[in-house]
């Protein structure tokens, strides 16, 4: 049994020491996620120990200083805004990825992709500011006050568009060359090849990207806060001002204390759960074996 003894293949003492130190640091880094969860639970416990979590969606209204903790209007606003943004951003994002891959002239491709990458790097507060000074007054001309669910949807859609486009682009780039050749050999037109062969081949990456974009939309704070109007209510139409979960935290943290603060941490926990479910779905979806993909 050579493997049980020290030999030239085993790590030197210095390397083992280094490995142990690095491993310790890596576990420290990993503990950040654990401690985030711990602190969210710990800070919201004073409230959740006394009231049942069901009251977070069943209470009459959101008046945390009077002991009413209804998050459902914020929850519906968050979900509607994200859904609306996805409905807009997914087709345009995929279309824009297809353009960069298969339609654009060769000299244009690199520049076009770089532009989308730069769009992805623009801070959310700038998108929000732009929405507030350009979009909201424009929408307000038709249907005052302008800051509304629709404005939030538009700004969110612009923000998550690069995510959709870049992940779809990467997924399309990973489609094997043989698929292209097969499609060409069959004499398929460009769109038939794309819709029948290339998009289905890249389905996994594209769907994962859409889910990631959804997670980003749900968690987005500043841009939505600046353009959504921040009235706590279930939206009845696209032009109603709404307040999302994340915006609510940002607005009220500054002066919240006691149970109010605990309620905000609880809503942070709700937000984190939604986002983690989306991220978990991505992992599960990626790990699934499709017969047509590696």
């Amino acid at each position: 049994m050579i493997s049980s003894k020290r030999n030239t293949l085993s790590l030197s003492t210095a390397d083992r020491r280094l490995g142990a130190i690095l491993g310790l640091l890596a576990v420290t880094a990993a503990m950040v996620a654990v401690s985030i969860l711990f602190f969210l639970i710990d800070e919201s416990r004073p409230l959740l120990n006394r009231i049942s979590p069901a009251r977070l969606i069943l209470d009459a209204s959101w008046h945390p200083t009077q002991g009413l903790y209804d998050l459902s209007p914020m929850l519906s606003a968050t979900l509607l805004a994200s859904l609306g943004a996805l409905l807009l951003a997914v087709p345009v994002g995929i279309g824009s990825a297809l353009f960069g891959r298969y339609y654009a002239a060769a000299w244009l491709t690199a520049g076009y992709r770089r532009m989308i990458e730069l769009l992805a790097g623009i801070p959310s507060v700038v998108y929000g500011f732009w929405g507030l000074t350009m979009l909201a007054p424009w929408i307000g001309r038709f249907e005052p006050p302008g800051v509304s669910l629709l404005t939030a949807i538009l700004v969110l859609a612009i923000m998550i568009l690069p995510t959709v486009a870049l992940t779809a682009d990467a997924a399309l780039a990973a489609v094997p060359q043989s698929r292209h050749r097969c499609a060409a050999a069959l004499g398929l037109s460009r769109w038939t090849a794309i819709s029948g062969v290339l998009l289905p081949s890249a389905r996994k990456g594209i769907v994962s990207g859409i889910l990631l974009a959804a997670a980003r939309a749900v968690g987005e704070t500043m841009a939505v806060l600046m353009v959504a109007g921040n009235v706590v209510q279930h939206p009845h139409g696209l032009f109603d001002p709404v307040r999302t979960l994340a915006a609510n935290i940002a607005l009220e943290m500054a002066y919240a204390g006691g149970d109010h603060r605990a309620a905000l941490f609880a809503s942070g926990l709700v937000l984190l759960c939604i986002v983690l479910i989306l991220a978990g779905t991505v992992q599960w979806y990626k790990a699934r074996d499709f017969y047509d993909q590696k």
Binding site: A29, A30, M31, V32, A33, V34, S35, I36, F39, L40, E43, L212, A215, V218, G219, E220, T221, A246, I249, A250, M253, L264, F265, G268, L271, L272, V275, L276, L278, A279, Q283
Partner: peptide
């Protein structure tokens, strides 16, 4: 946990 961390929204980082 790095995957989890990557998906945490920024406002939750603010709370933490």
């Amino acid at each position: 946990s790095i995957d989890v961390l990557a998906s945490v929204p920024s406002i939750v980082f603010g709370l933490f």
